[in-house]
């Protein structure tokens, strides 16, 4: 037990007792080696023309990768929460819609989902919007919506940025996985909690919001963190839509310079930096949210900010 944890208080009291060989054995060698590689690469980027050129060409992709992942994940969380609640709904319509979505999407490779959403679903939505716009324009008594109708009917598929389609694809794909995470989290809370909340007069949504979800979030935070990191990695798939993310810029750089080693070393390094920092961040967040009160407070904050932004928008309108 003490051997597996060289930093325990017991060990620190009498450091002389620990043999040097044990301490060496317990060092996180893998992390040191990784750090060494990182330092080597930073050194190369600063001092080697080829690496610097590759880095400068590829680095702007960081922003695209991060933007796409974070926005897509935020949308996936909302989709996941709604679909996850649908999966445990006693209403057969809601249940079947949610289950259909989850089972279908989880059975398709992510790259196919991204291509399908970008080239099939998004164009379908645009066509639908065109139809709706034309309908509004042709209907006399809807003339007060003329501006909206014109915008809708002239919407063109080429106006939809590939990045938007990429985000839609990622969010659509990950929504199904998050739905299962939320479902499992909600179901892990014992039935008596819902019964107690309902017996106090709360309706289903009040009980969810104030009693079930704050407890479920503590359970699902680790899997959610994992999924965020997985999303960061899977965002490389959007390069098939020619979105200029890290991977796409890597491909472009290689065909521009024919420097294969420099290109893919740099791309790999940038991905690893993000994912490793990301998992550290998730761990810190988990620790901070360990106490139930902290979760309740942060959920309340989110809802307050949502309410504020909604009311502010209404004032502007």
């Amino acid at each position: 037990m003490s051997e597996s944890n060289p930093n325990s208080a017991y060990k620190r009291k009498e450091p002389g007792i620990v043999p040097v060989s044990t301490r060496l054995k317990n060092l996180p060698w893998w992390a040191l080696f990784l750090l060494f590689l990182g330092v080597l690469l930073v050194y190369a980027i600063i001092n080697r023309e080829n690496y610097r050129d590759a880095f400068e060409f590829i680095a702007p992709g960081l922003q695209v990768t991060l933007t796409a992942s974070v926005i897509a994940f935020a949308i996936a969380l909302v989709v996941g929460l709604i679909m996850g609640m649908g999966r445990i709904s006693s209403n057969p319509i809601t249940y079947n819609i949610a289950t259909f979505y989850v089972e279908v999407v989880r059975g398709i490779p992510m790259i196919v989902i991204i291509i399908y959403v970008a080239f099939v679903l998004v164009p379908l939505v645009v066509q639908g919007a065109n139809g709706l716009g034309n309908l509004i324009l042709e209907t006399n008594w809807l003339s007060f919506l003329k501006g909206f109708g014109t915008t809708m009917s002239t919407l063109d598929i080429t106006q939809i940025d590939p990045l938007v389609r990429a985000i839609a694809g990622l969010a659509f794909g990950y929504g199904a996985y998050e739905a299962e995470v939320f479902r499992a989290g909600i179901q892990s809370i014992e039935r008596g909690q819902m019964e107690a909340a309902r017996s106090l007069g709360m309706n289903y949504f009040q009980a969810m919001r104030h009693v079930i979800l704050p407890q479920a979030i503590r359970v699902i935070l680790p899997p959610l963190g994992n999924d965020l990191i997985a999303m960061l990695k899977d965002s490389s798939l959007i390069s098939v839509l020619a979105v200029r993310d890290l991977t796409q810029l890597g491909k472009l750089n290689r065909s521009r310079t024919f420097r294969t080693f420099e290109t893919w070393n740099t791309v790999t390094y940038l991905y690893l930096s993000m994912t490793l920092l990301g998992s550290m961040g998730v761990k810190i967040l988990e620790k901070r949210l360990q106490s139930g009160e902290a979760i309740t407070t942060s959920i309340n904050n989110v809802f307050r900010q949502l309410r504020q932004s909604l009311t502010r928008k209404q004032v502007i309108d």
Partner: peptide, 27 residues
Amino acid sequence: VGMVFQLFNLFPHITVLNNITLAQELI
């Protein structure tokens, strides 16, 4: 209709005080 359960079913993520105030404020 107030109900008291065999397994108490207190809300474990909030304090005793908030357990008692939550439904008062909401309902």
